[in-house]
Nucleic acid binder design. Structure first.
Lengths: 250, 250
DNA sequence: GCTTTTCTTGACAGTTTCTTAACATTGTAA
DNA sequence: TTACAATGTTAAGAAACTGTCAAGAAAAGC
């Protein structure tokens, strides 16, 4: 599996077709409604969002905008509306591409893959780890299997606890602000609702820290956010991707 | 000017049209041949490359691949060839977008701008992950991680202390007035409230200076403000010069 | 349906950080 | 040297932040 895609489209044939094209390489989750789709995006955190903004009938443009307020996830608009205005609106709202129906199947695939490549490059530049495991001291987290062990002993985490911990682990060594964590884990949400994050971190610490009062893994940066120690296995795997553009030295 | 665009297209009317659409916001350099275009790309280092890979005699796909070997500059293919194969080939070769002729003018603009936005984000992420440190003597400050070390030992700073120190480090070597620092850290505020700044600097010095009476890092310029020594990480060290290939043979 | 787990909220306490004010010290100009 | 302004230091209360608990709501599992 190359990743997870959320498809939001009220045309069932469209969805079925896209499923056929993509399901061998991607996990597909679909919805016919904006409301449900929105919930899927915030709970499942897909790698790509495909949406038919149904311009101008329904307000898909503001949907795209509102996702963009809290997520950088690539959005591809796929619509029967071939007008220039529809495409421009979607792209300006934050969509990464606008594809007209009926589309060529291989072209859809190619555009999705291109999107994924670009986003991976962006995340890599941001220091997001692509390693399969996080290891630090006695703590080990398996990103793919949702498994966490402390000193070889398996630890059960709830969904949100795992989301928080794996987020910290993907960005290991960096301080993540409360706001960033909240938006990443809960999606759109009142940013000042830090209480729920605090409770989750307390519960997490109870499960993985020997002495929650003197944390060994999850550190608090007062007034800013949380961080976790650098992944011990990511250093070797720091891949040297070629530089994107030549730059002047002046 | 928003940037520089190299257009490689043998169709003069196309080039003229694109010039008309884009020249108010971008510097346009164009060529009708691959060879010349290639030289332009390597010498002018544009922000975006627009290319019609559908040259009658030459292979535009290998051109794109060849540019991709050493540059990540966004490439937009614009071609009269509407086939799926043409689009898929271009995108898989490394093009960021494939636009069919005849195109909508505003859509072309929007797609170019979207490309620029994405690429800026990528470069910003790369820049941040490189030029993220201030170093002077034993003092080291990591702008992104709110982390400060003195002689390798981590030092804990409060949010405001870090704000002040990083402000000084960002403007290293220059004297920052009390007024400027206060406004930067606390926002609009009674300008004569320098007391709070003095307290913060005292606390900062306690944490990072060996002998606060004879500061090694944070210097007072009487009657003006504070300053910190110039960052020892020079700009040349930050951006390594990638190799450049100047010939294109096909 | 029921039971169990997880999520969310609000209250509260302990801790850290911020801010103020008083006082000490240093620098500067007459 | 003296007087005065500017800067440094300290301490204490205020404010903000963080960690914890418990209870009800919601969701998941059976």
């Amino acid at each position: 599996m190359n990743g997870k895609i959320v498809i939001i489209d009220s045309d069932r044939r469209s969805v079925k077709l896209m499923r056929n094209i993509l399901s061998d390489r991607y996990e597909i989750i679909s919805s016919a409604s904006f409301g449900e789709g929105y919930l899927m995006i915030s709970s499942d955190l897909p790698d790509i969002i495909i949406i038919d903004p149904q311009f101008p009938k329904s307000d898909g443009i503001s949907f795209i905008k509102s996702v963009r307020e809290w997520s950088d996830c690539p959005i591809i608009a796929v619509s029967e509306n071939g007008t220039e205005h529809a495409a421009v609106s979607a792209i300006n709202a934050g969509a990464d591409d606008y594809i007209r129906k009926p589309f060529f199947q291989n072209e859809l695939s190619a555009r999705i893959e291109a999107c994924m490549r670009r986003f991976s490059a962006l995340e890599a530049a941001r220091g997001v780890s692509k390693a399969a495991y996080y290891v630090s001291g006695g703590l080990r987290l398996d990103f793919n299997n949702y498994a966490v062990t402390v000193d070889e002993k398996p630890v059960h985490l709830t969904k949100n606890e795992f989301k928080i911990l794996s987020l910290l682990c993907r960005h290991s060594g960096k301080v993540l602000t409360y706001d960033f964590i909240i938006k990443s884990v809960w999606g759109p949400r009142n940013a000042d609702s830090t209480g729920i994050l605090r409770v989750n971190v307390t519960n997490l610490r109870k499960k993985i820290e020997k002495d929650p009062l003197h944390p060994e893994y999850i550190f608090t940066e007062n007034g800013i956010g949380y961080k976790i120690a650098q992944n011990e296995i990511s250093r070797q795997q720091l891949s040297a991707k070629p530089h994107r553009r030549l730059t002047y030295n002046n």
